[in-house]
Amino acid sequence: MRTAYCFDLDGTITSTEILPCIASELGVADEIATLTRITMDGLIPFEASFRLRCLILGQVSPSKVCSIVSEIPIDKSILSFIHENRADAFIVTGNLDIWIRPLLDLCGCRFYSSTGFYDKGLIRVDNVLNKADAIAEIRSLGYDRIVAIGDGANDAPMLYAADVSIAYGGVHSPSSTAKEAASHIVHEGVALCKMLRAL
């Protein structure tokens, strides 16, 4: 059976949320963290919240964002699992491709993300990823089974679309929406990878 392993990025592969780290450069880390948290909890729509956060964080230079993101901590056990299963591992993230490139390069697997570009010093969000669409596209690659791992409300469409869905609480408790969509709940990286290897 050919299995695809689909990982959310922020707070799943990474050991912290990425956008608040970028926001620290502007002195608004707490505000962006609060906005990120209530978005993850499903209290406001992901796309509207994400576009607002991009508008605010677009003030940080691309080179500085790259430097900040390069220092984001990664769960080493999950990273090892991705490297071991590189051909069948996917990152499925609502974050912007141009912001997360250092992490994508580190993981070295295929990915689906929101897309954006800089235009005259301003960030332009080209497309905000629908995670269910990403799962459908991955399934079309010939996979018999999709395993999805995520923690926020925006992960719920991906979790519902998967054959095995895991709400992950490595950094903070999974949102109630993610837990409702999940067939399993795991709270630690080593335990997650042990479970993935046993599937």
Rank of each mutant, 00 (worst) to 15 (best):
M1T: 09
R2Q: 14
T3P: 00
C6T: 12
F7D: 11
D8V: 09
L9W: 07
L9P: 12
T16Q: 12
E17R: 09
L19Q: 14
C21H: 10
A23T: 01
A23E: 05
S24C: 13
L26M: 14
G27E: 11
D30G: 04
E31F: 05
A33M: 08
T34A: 11
T34F: 08
I38N: 03
M40D: 11
L43C: 03
I44Q: 10
F50G: 01
G58T: 10
V60W: 09
P62G: 02
S63A: 14
C66M: 12
K76F: 00
F81A: 08
F81T: 09
I82L: 04
N85L: 02
R86T: 09
D88H: 13
I91R: 05
T93Y: 09
G94S: 07
I100R: 11
I100G: 07
R101W: 01
L104C: 06
C107T: 11
F111Y: 15
F111R: 13
Y112N: 04
T115F: 05
T115Y: 05
G116H: 10
F117T: 14
Y118T: 11
R124Y: 06
V128M: 08
N130M: 04
A132D: 14
I135V: 14
A136V: 08
A136F: 06
S140I: 01
L141Q: 14
A148G: 03
G150T: 03
G150W: 09
G152T: 03
A153V: 02
D155K: 13
M158E: 02
Y160A: 02
V164C: 11
V164Y: 03
V164A: 05
H172Q: 10
S173A: 11
A178L: 09
K179V: 15
K179N: 08
A182V: 10
E188L: 05
V190F: 09
A191F: 03
A191R: 02
K194E: 09
K194C: 03
M195D: 00
